[in-house]
Design a binder for these strands. Sequence first.
DNA 1: CGATAACTTGATGTGACTCAACTTAAGTGG
DNA 2: CCACTTAAGTTGAGTCACATCAAGTTATCG
Lengths: 253, 253
Amino acid sequence: MSQAAELSCVCGKSGNCVIYNRSVCAAGSAEDLAQLDRISHQRTYARGSVIQAQGEPCDIVGNIVEGVVKLSSTSVNGDDHIVGLLFPSDFFGRLFAEESRFSYEAATDVTLCTMNKPAFERFLVEHPAIEHEMLKATLDELDAVREWAAITNGHTTMQRVATLLYVFSRRAVNQHAKGNAPASRIVHVPLSRRDIADYLGTTPETLSRNIQMLARSKVIRNINAKHFELLNPAELIRHSGETRADLDRIASV
Amino acid sequence: MSQAAELSCVCGKSGNCVIYNRSVCAAGSAEDLAQLDRISHQRTYARGSVIQAQGEPCDIVGNIVEGVVKLSSTSVNGDDHIVGLLFPSDFFGRLFAEESRFSYEAATDVTLCTMNKPAFERFLVEHPAIEHEMLKATLDELDAVREWAAITNGHTTMQRVATLLYVFSRRAVNQHAKGNAPASRIVHVPLSRRDIADYLGTTPETLSRNIQMLARSKVIRNINAKHFELLNPAELIRHSGETRADLDRIASV
DNA sequence: CGATAACTTGATGTGACTCAACTTAAGTGG
DNA sequence: CCACTTAAGTTGAGTCACATCAAGTTATCG
């Protein structure tokens, strides 16, 4: 937070953007970025606030600069379901549609680089190279969502929990360090138990039991509610029911 | 089958394509279509045959002309998971990637309009308007996959079964008739029980029990394994746990 | 430091998976 | 074209993982 606050907008031509080299903006020329710079500006949202409500007309899109945004669907009987998590450099918002079928909510305090949706849509049509990047990114996202759907559906809660923990440990590495660095021993999961449960398709109670089970068997150690120490990564992978290669692929998206 | 066999390719300039007005080709000019016509040709696959194996390099893409293609993922322990079903006019294949993370298999006998992948990719880059349509279609698909993920995850098997039956009844209507015609009384689900189970994230046994339960309570009537008569649509909707509006939206994708 | 939310732990009921037998449908070759 | 074979679908019994309800414990924030 403190660091991101002093940075210019994501696509700023000054080039000091934290996520620049990982977002779609990377495909644009200096002039393109200058143009994007004009239609974008940074905004912060407190944890829990709604960025875009389900079914509401959406007028902003953009990139996550910092924090985690949850993409969720609330059914008629009131239970939430998280269908996606968005991390720094991920694009948010629903292009080319009147309204969003899902709600975008700040799962942590977040910093976003927001743009007026119609303005960005016009920009895309005028810049096929960047629209091409958007298409590629969307195709990757589609694969990732399907992969996650396959995981949440065919596996036990323990397998999902283990997968999530391992993927988060890898993702943190992918974002901070470069190359194929080993997984950090400390895993930070910045989500509440309820959000994790909604993402994994289970309840906070069952989730807690599984986490404690992993802690009792010395696979992880609970530092606090959102921090874990990875004592036995190999065992964690075994619990996930996936191969290491698959897990690393999921984490890389 | 018999009818599709005598039709020219999907994007044929002769304009007698069955799915033309629903596929991305609709955005192209006459010249564009002629160009597509040159790189595409129709192929048929027998039920059960693999169009594109998981993890294999993929060299073809295209549109479904007739039949149903299942997009599935096989995990290490061998159980299949269907992450998507493709119907006539849907695009298949993984653009801009070396290999497909999922396998494409013919769930019924299918007729495809296939194109050489690199050739179509080159075509897209040269035709931003059509690539724009691809992006919109992909965004729609992403929404649909997420919506389905939310359904399979938070609902009981009965709710999923009811949803599937209702959506299939609507989808058939959307494809054959035009406008907001009432749902047909006869629902045709051209998939095997195993495929349906893999799609719904359950087993053939549990699926069968739920279908028989609906039949016993006179909500549907089993004509044969793949055909059902809708005796009480309102009850079916009630069993699905969704609103009618939501179901219709799902079916329209 | 007190209040409220977040998380953990316990007890209990049940939906759905598993293994297994049976029935019906779909191919196949003589 | 019909017996034979094999696959597909249905039904049954038993078990278990997980949701639910409820109480207790630990964080978090004013």
